[in-house]
Simulated assay, not measured.
Amino acid sequence: MIKMANIELIRKLHFVECRSIRQISKDLGYSRQTIRKALEQTEIPKYTRTVTTKMPAVDSVKPLIIQWLKDDETAPQKQRHSAAQIYRRLVSEYQFTGGESTIRRFVRQLKLEWNLLTPLASIPLEYSPGEFAQFDWGEVIIELNGVEVKCMLFCIRLLYSRKIFVKVFPHQRQEALFQGHMDAFNYFGGVPKTIVYDNMKTAVKRVLEGSKREEQDAFIQFRSAFLFDAQFCAPAKGNEKGQV
């Protein structure tokens, strides 16, 4: 059975580079019938949820972390909490079961929002129309039927025109990721050649050496249907996509 990554390659060679079925068959060693089947592969992947996800462990301790950091503002420098110290306190005093990296990310996010940290500088680049876009998820609290609910913001921006598309979803699973992209492409009136992402699990199965990634099959299938490339930031280098 032909792999999804090879189906994507065949479709790009034909539809983007305008190679004939005969030439692709000769270059890749697949039969012409196999090439034709790959070119007909335009199905959008469907996501089937099999496991109910629990509320992230960090959500239950966010108010506590916020209070500790606010108290630190009036405390002597040496008595202020580091992310590691916050994690150790949560484990020893509150039986926290989440990971330390989760706490570090949340603490850094808070300090950036409170202007206690300076984001890393990014070198501005020039882009051609339709060449690049950047994507990211954000969080927003909305009031739904009188109850505050945390939702996810799907955000994608074209780097040449700076045109932006934003949509609210109740989660950031694959079905939201794919639907958001399709709505954005319809709004933009086209598909960017390359979209820049972080290493989200809905797209990346495994981070390999350098810029190489083992992508999720469903994500490859989705990209293959719309014929765009994905570029991923280095781990923990979200500043590489500073437009979203």
Rank of each mutant, 00 (worst) to 15 (best):
M1G: 09
I2M: 12
A5H: 13
N6R: 14
I7R: 13
L9A: 14
I10F: 02
I10T: 01
I10P: 04
L13Q: 12
E17C: 08
E17D: 15
R19H: 15
R19N: 15
S20L: 14
S20E: 15
I24T: 02
S25A: 14
K26A: 15
Y30D: 09
Y30H: 05
S31Q: 01
R32C: 15
T34A: 13
I35L: 01
A38E: 06
E40Y: 05
I44L: 14
T48Y: 12
T48C: 07
R49F: 04
R49H: 04
V51A: 09
M55L: 15
P56V: 15
P56N: 14
D59N: 10
S60D: 15
P63A: 14
L64T: 15
I65A: 00
W68E: 04
W68N: 08
L69C: 01
K70P: 00
D72V: 05
Q77T: 09
K78W: 07
H81Y: 06
S82V: 00
I86W: 00
Y87N: 06
R88S: 10
V91L: 08
E93D: 14
Y94S: 14
Y94H: 15
T102R: 10
I103D: 01
R105D: 06
F106D: 01
Q109K: 12
L110Q: 08
K111R: 08
L117T: 02
T118F: 05
T118C: 09
P119Y: 03
P124D: 02
L125E: 11
L125T: 05
E126Y: 13
Y127L: 00
G130N: 00
F132N: 04
W137T: 02
G138T: 01
V140Y: 09
N145V: 10
V149R: 09
K150C: 13
C151M: 11
F154P: 08
F154M: 01
C155F: 04
C155E: 04
Y160S: 01
R162Y: 02
I164S: 10
K167N: 14
V168L: 14
P170Y: 03
H171I: 13
Q174R: 10
E175F: 11
A176T: 10
Q179F: 06
G180C: 02
H181L: 07
M182V: 09
M182C: 11
M182Q: 11
D183F: 03
N186S: 11
Y187Q: 10
G189R: 01
G190L: 06
G190V: 09
V191H: 03
P192D: 03
V196E: 08
Y197N: 01
D198K: 13
D198R: 07
N199I: 02
N199Q: 03
K201N: 13
T202E: 07
A203S: 08
L208P: 00
K212R: 13
K212N: 05
R213K: 04
Q216W: 01
Q216M: 08
D217I: 13
A218L: 05
F219M: 07
I220P: 05
I220V: 11
F226N: 05
F226C: 09
F226A: 07
L227T: 09
L227K: 12
F228R: 04
D229E: 12
A230Q: 06
A230R: 05
A230V: 02
P235Y: 12
A236K: 06
A236D: 13
K237W: 08
G238D: 02
E240Q: 10
K241E: 01
G242Q: 11
